[in-house]
Amino acid sequence: MSEQSKEVERSQNAGLAVIKPDAVRDPGIEPHRVRMTDKSPKHAKSAARQVALLFTLSMFGSAFALWTYFAFPINEDLNTVRQNTLFLGVGITLGLLGIGIGAIHWAKTLMPDHEVAEDRHLLASPEDKRAAAIEIINLANQESGFTRRKLIRRTLYGALALFPLPGLIIFGDLGPNPGNSLRHTIWKKGTRLARDPYGTPIKASDVTIGSVYHVVPEGLVPGTEHYLEEKAKAAVLLVRVEPDKLIETEERKSWSYQGIVAYSKICTHVGCPVALYEQHTHHLLCPCHQSTFDLVDGCKVVFGPAARPLPQLPIYVDEEGYLRAQSDFNEPVGPSFWDRSVKS
């Protein structure tokens, strides 16, 4: 590198920029190009007419919008909603675009289009002003004794650090402590499996091979207390497959009934309902993030971001043939949380 560019680097001003002494000179602003509307009064006049026309169009648009408000009331017929939306919208659009395009056309054709240059000044204040500012700060410091009186300063810091805390703590009643609520659902021994959302109980014989039932615990119907909160944990998917296709651990052999299995519908990733069941592949797919679970293999994850299998609901059949839960799920359902495996 040349001596000169090293010089530049040391100057701390332009940094690593290379400043060439023989850079091309700036020829100054390009000469102004004259518009037709500047040269010919005829063109100027027609431009003025166009602008006025656009403003008039805007008036018509707004008037039309006012008219439509009354002319297109809305009632039970959805077509009226469509008409109201469309015509009101079109009227307002005209009202707005007429003004906008008119104003800009005006500016472009009739207002002067000479480019003007204005000087900029360095943003940093001149040295004397800076010195004066520093003087003021020093004076304020001296008069208050801010740096001198350590005790005051430090206690002030302490006070300032503590004072926002009550402001935070009063948000403590935003919600209860999570407690154990995430570990339990309203499923318990003997709860009948019922159809979502009408709550009719399901017989094992109703569940033919290839069927899928969206299931809630019996009694959980719209209108019951904490309906959505309980449903958000208790929703279950019930499927029957050929019994010999099921791959079951010893422990879980008793959890199914003749190929009927019930799994939590709440994704172990972030909690969307894993509701897409493919009859032949036996895969369950979550439509939110595409986690895929193999229903015949304990709902293990075969694809996607989820990490854990869906929890299984142990079921049995009573004397009347209805499907019932053996117990609650034996693990928390839904998305993972920090202490989900901690026994409490």
Partner: peptide, 12 residues
């Protein structure tokens, strides 16, 4: 004129 008109255009 340009910026004011442009507001109406964006809204429109």
């Amino acid at each position: 004129a340009k910026a004011g008109g442009f507001f109406f255009i964006v809204f429109g």
